[in-house]
Computed example of a mutant assay.
Amino acid sequence: MSVSQPYPIGTPGQPWGATEIQAWRSSHAIRRRYKDDVLAVIDRLRARFDVQQYGSLDFDPERFPLYCIRSRDWHDELPCVLITGGVHGYETSGVHGALRFVERHAADYAGRINLLVAPCISPWAYETIQRWNPYAIDPNRSFRDDSPAQESAALLRLVAPLRERLLLHVDLHETTDTDESEFRPALAARDGKVYEPGEIPDGFYLVDDSEQPQTAFQQAVIAAVARVTHIAPADGRGEIIGSPVIAPGVIEYALRPLGLCAGMTSARYRTTTEVYPDSPRASDEQCILAQVTAVCAAIDYALARA
């Protein structure tokens, strides 16, 4: 979309109402199947892990049940680890990275951690390859009390008993070219604001918590991922997506005030991964591997210091 062109839904300068939200939702067709891509994999894991339904989307409860995967031998004395994917449903490697980790690596940590994995928090957005939920709400700005996003509220309820007990939370995301071509222009249109173009970084990076930074932890994860894919460099201003780079491949956000998923608990170690799937230097498989590598490196670091 050209910067000079207005977003095709709404009136420039005016926030969306119900009519515009309905028009936006109607413009998005099903492009892949949550049942085939996600639920089928979860079903295969039932023989080795406990699978729990923790909610469903009222938009279509039968089509969009929400599932998590838990360690089968849960022991209260063990440290607890939370892995989340698909908060933004279009960020594909986050969903499949979470599932791949459970399939191939979770058993390596049996008896050492209690593991809770929510691999696809936003299944409608997964099917339509969208950032928002069906009501044009960003779940990743909605992890707060009285959340307006049912995807976020359901996860908050699930995690509530563990909120103060978690050692680690890794939230798996992507930054894509469509962030600039579609999702940020849509955000500006929805809110009645002017779209300000940004720059998409080429490579993997992490988002730390500016209110409780763990720079050495973030650097250890970056070092592990650098062995499987390239790390995003800072731009000419020393930034990545508008935030100062505080270590190679690491920026910081105020996670909890922004309502971000990675800020929903009091875990000592928290990070948001950001894979760049549109890079000519990274394949789909590399993107999934980067997510899995980040999870394993994060757990190894946290356990070594628990």
Score class of each variant (00 low, 15 high):
residue 196 E to A: 11
residue 225 V to C: 09
residue 143 F to E: 09
residue 277 P to W: 13
residue 41 V to F: 02
residue 87 V to M: 08
residue 5 Q to T: 14
residue 266 S to F: 12
residue 183 F to M: 11
residue 85 G to N: 06
residue 117 V to T: 13
residue 5 Q to G: 00
residue 33 R to F: 03
residue 108 D to M: 04
residue 211 E to V: 02
residue 195 Y to P: 00
residue 244 P to V: 15
residue 40 A to D: 12
residue 241 I to E: 09
residue 39 L to A: 05
residue 33 R to V: 01
residue 22 Q to C: 07
residue 201 P to A: 06
residue 143 F to M: 02
residue 31 R to W: 04
residue 44 R to S: 07
residue 121 I to P: 04
residue 222 I to Y: 07
residue 249 G to I: 09
residue 54 Y to I: 02
residue 214 Q to Y: 04
residue 148 P to Y: 05
residue 168 L to W: 03
residue 292 V to L: 13
residue 128 T to K: 14
residue 137 I to E: 10
residue 66 L to M: 06
residue 117 V to G: 07
residue 45 L to K: 02
residue 262 A to M: 10
residue 232 A to K: 09
residue 141 R to H: 14
residue 179 D to M: 08
residue 292 V to M: 11
residue 265 T to Q: 09
residue 213 P to D: 08
residue 204 F to Y: 15
residue 82 L to S: 02
residue 190 R to E: 12
residue 96 H to T: 13
residue 279 S to L: 10
residue 105 H to L: 07
residue 255 L to A: 08
residue 30 I to K: 12
residue 13 G to C: 02
residue 57 L to Y: 00
residue 290 A to I: 07
residue 257 P to A: 09
residue 54 Y to F: 01
residue 97 G to R: 12
residue 205 Y to A: 01
residue 79 P to Y: 02
residue 291 Q to Y: 08
residue 181 S to M: 08
residue 262 A to C: 05
residue 59 F to Y: 15
residue 66 L to Q: 12
residue 41 V to D: 05
residue 151 E to M: 00
residue 121 I to T: 11
residue 105 H to E: 12
residue 255 L to W: 03
residue 167 L to F: 06
residue 136 A to Y: 09
residue 159 V to I: 15
residue 204 F to G: 05
residue 76 D to I: 00
residue 77 E to K: 00
residue 6 P to L: 08
residue 214 Q to D: 10
residue 103 E to K: 11
residue 225 V to A: 11
residue 41 V to Y: 03
residue 198 G to D: 12
residue 232 A to G: 06
residue 23 A to H: 07
residue 26 S to W: 01
residue 259 G to F: 10
residue 34 Y to Q: 06
residue 38 V to T: 08
residue 150 Q to E: 15
residue 111 G to S: 06
residue 20 E to H: 09
residue 286 Q to R: 11
residue 98 A to W: 09
residue 301 Y to R: 12
residue 163 R to L: 08
residue 81 V to C: 07
residue 136 A to Q: 10
residue 48 R to N: 14
residue 233 P to Q: 14
residue 299 I to K: 02
residue 303 L to E: 03
residue 152 S to K: 07
residue 284 D to V: 11
residue 216 A to N: 13
residue 180 E to F: 04
residue 70 R to L: 10
residue 225 V to H: 10
residue 221 V to D: 06
residue 14 Q to K: 15
residue 188 A to W: 12
